[in-house]
Design a protein around this nucleic acid. Structure first.
Lengths: 148, 148
DNA sequence: ATAATTAAGTTGCATAAACAACGGTTGTGT
DNA sequence: ACACAACCGTTGTTTATGCAACTTAATTAT
């Protein structure tokens, strides 16, 4: 690993590469499930938070609301979720998995488990805890930097 | 951090968020330097590897050669690098920073240092070593997973 | 009640990046 | 020498994502 001299932003490059490889891992496993890797986290969010709206989904996943809007539309087109206008506040959509979506989740859980265990293969429990702590710290650090 | 139940792919989300926040950090600091965050690593690579060609650059940065080609074209348009056909093998471009590019690097080094120290703020030296080790392990793990 | 404000979603536009198909160059094998 | 393979770079297309402008719905302040 001669990357220390080669690439002084190696931590950043590593993070970026892990991110891309993970997307590509997910894509390679989706088979006939009609979603893309970008919709993967949306499906899990709906699995755990039935009836959530798009704005809250964006907040929870730390994504732009436009990104979430388009992702959810695509999931709706694929028949995996439904978006129903909230009768009490018609600005909101209430998002839920359809039966087809719940079925797909079985496979998505497997894919997630496989990816998670690939990622942390060869790490002790202590390593994994450390990793989570350090990732969370980095995230807080870099998301709180003042603009400009 | 109630994200354990919320978001079973939290490690992945964290990585993705750190990546995006880092890009946005870089963008916010570029000021009048006419590049985007995607060209940031290209500039550093040329700083350390004058005369490199695009294919090797792609390998070193783990990027697609098309991505590198477009990035380098943009840097050339901005006057920060030159691409000269290799006389001995005219398939190759030999890439170098221009004087303007070298000047820009002074600022880019500062930005990189600021970002790096933001990222690992609050970490001990031991933490940083652990972080690097675990990131490298994750990268190897996920890039070596067999396809399909 | 009406105007002003805030909130939710949508959409246009830009960037980052991959992948695949293609077009020149160079190198090889017969 | 010529055909074929390997290599480098380009370009079209797709996805992931952000940001900003806009629409419609609800809320608040006068």
């Amino acid at each position: 690993m001669a990357d220390n001299e080669d690439c002084p932003i190696s931590r950043l490059r590593l993070i970026s590469m892990i991110n891309r490889d993970s997307h590509s891992f997910i894509k390679s496993r989706l088979g006939d499930i009609d979603i893309n890797s970008g919709q993967f986290p949306l499906m899990f969010l709906l699995y755990y938070h039935d009836g959530i709206n798009q704005g809250t989904a964006a907040l929870k996943l730390n994504l732009d609301k436009g990104t979430v809007a388009r992702g959810m539309m695509r999931l709706e087109d694929s028949g995996l979720i439904i978006r129903k206008k909230d009768d009490h506040d018609r600005r909101n959509y209430r998002l839920s998995l359809t039966p087809a979506g719940r079925l797909a989740m079985e496979r998505l859980h497997e894919i997630r488990a496989e990816l998670e265990s690939s990622l942390v293969a060869g790490m002790s429990d202590e390593d994994r805890r450390e990793l989570d702590r350090l990732l969370q710290l980095m995230h807080r650090n870099v998301s709180e930097v003042p603009d400009g």
